[in-house]
Amino acid sequence: MCQICNGTHVISAISVSSIMISCCPICGPESEEVQNARFANMLQEIAEIKRLRKKGVR
């Protein structure tokens, strides 16, 4: 695992009035396959939450 980004492929620099987010210089950006899989997983989670809310389960 990368020591800079801890496997997230993202680094952030926090200053007094802003946050700068960029790709990890060692790992580079996430591959498109990983991004698409993560996005599909988020959509499934949202659909599951909506389904449970319709049933009245929180």
Rank of each mutant, 00 (worst) to 15 (best):
A40Q: 15
V16K: 15
N36E: 08
I26D: 14
R53Y: 00
P25K: 13
K55D: 04
C5F: 10
K54E: 09
M42T: 06
I46K: 13
M20S: 12
S17L: 15
L52R: 13
I49Y: 08
C23H: 15
N6T: 10
S31Y: 07
E32Y: 04
R51Y: 05
Q44K: 09
N6H: 14
Q44A: 04
T8P: 06
V10Y: 13
E45W: 02
E33C: 02
I46E: 10
I19T: 15
A40M: 07
C24M: 11
I26R: 14
L52I: 01
K50P: 01
I14A: 11
M42G: 00
A40E: 15
C5R: 10
A37R: 03
G7Q: 09
A13G: 04
H9I: 01
N41R: 04
I26K: 14
F39P: 01
L52Y: 06
E48K: 05
R38F: 02
S15H: 05
I4D: 07
E33G: 02
K50N: 08
K55N: 03
A37Q: 03
S15G: 06
S17V: 14
M20C: 09
P29D: 03
P25T: 14
G7E: 08
S18W: 00
Q44M: 04
T8K: 10
V57S: 02
E33M: 02
